[in-house]
């Protein structure tokens, strides 16, 4: 099978690998680069568990071909905590019980981060819209919505 070289920035560090041509970003991240924080839930683009941020935009790694990410900047949930300190979103998810089985959490946090990166003070409706592509089967969403709103309040009050 033809192998191709891929190279991109993963969570701030250079990542390079040989993958089979046509491999999804999800497959390259998990199977080649050991980045198993990214989950595959449906491989159809329906559940959002595989969501990552590519060059600042939220995308589905299960439907993105690894080769199309040459030289891109890719962020996963593994990069959220800095220097042993949890990101406000992570703290809020822990405190408001926004994670139960945990399988949707990585993607959900990426969707939430993509929201807060562009809109630091989202409304409840903005939050619901931002996570509408991410399915959670445990929480009923309310604790997640509360966590994202709490994180935005925490970040705003720290900045002030």
């Amino acid at each position: 099978m033809p192998k191709v070289a891929i190279r991109f920035t993963l969570n701030g560090s250079e990542a390079a690998e040989f993958v089979e041509s046509g491999t999804t970003l999800l497959g390259a991240l998990r199977d080649k680069l050991g980045e198993t924080s990214v989950k595959g839930g449906c491989l159809q683009g329906t559940c959002g568990a595989c969501s990552v941020i590519i060059d600042g935009a939220l995308k589905l790694s299960c439907l993105t071909l690894a080769e199309s990410c040459q030289d891109a900047r890719i962020e996963t949930v593994a990069a959220l905590a800095r220097g042993g300190l949890l990101h406000p979103l992570q703290r809020a998810f822990v405190e408001t019980f926004a994670t139960q089985c945990g399988f949707c959490t990585s993607g959900m946090l990426m969707a939430a981060k993509a929201l807060l990166d562009h809109n630091a003070t989202p409304s409840r409706e903005d939050v619901i819209e931002a996570i509408s592509g991410n399915i959670c089967r445990c929480t009923g969403y309310e604790p997640i919505i509360q966590a994202i709103l709490a994180a935005s309040r925490a970040a705003t009050s720290t900045a002030a």
């Binding site: 995308k59 969707a111 996570i131 592509g133």
Partner: peptide
């Protein structure tokens, strides 16, 4: 159409 990630793609 879709959620934010689908719309970005």
């Amino acid at each position: 159409i879709g959620g934010p990630a689908v719309r970005n793609m």
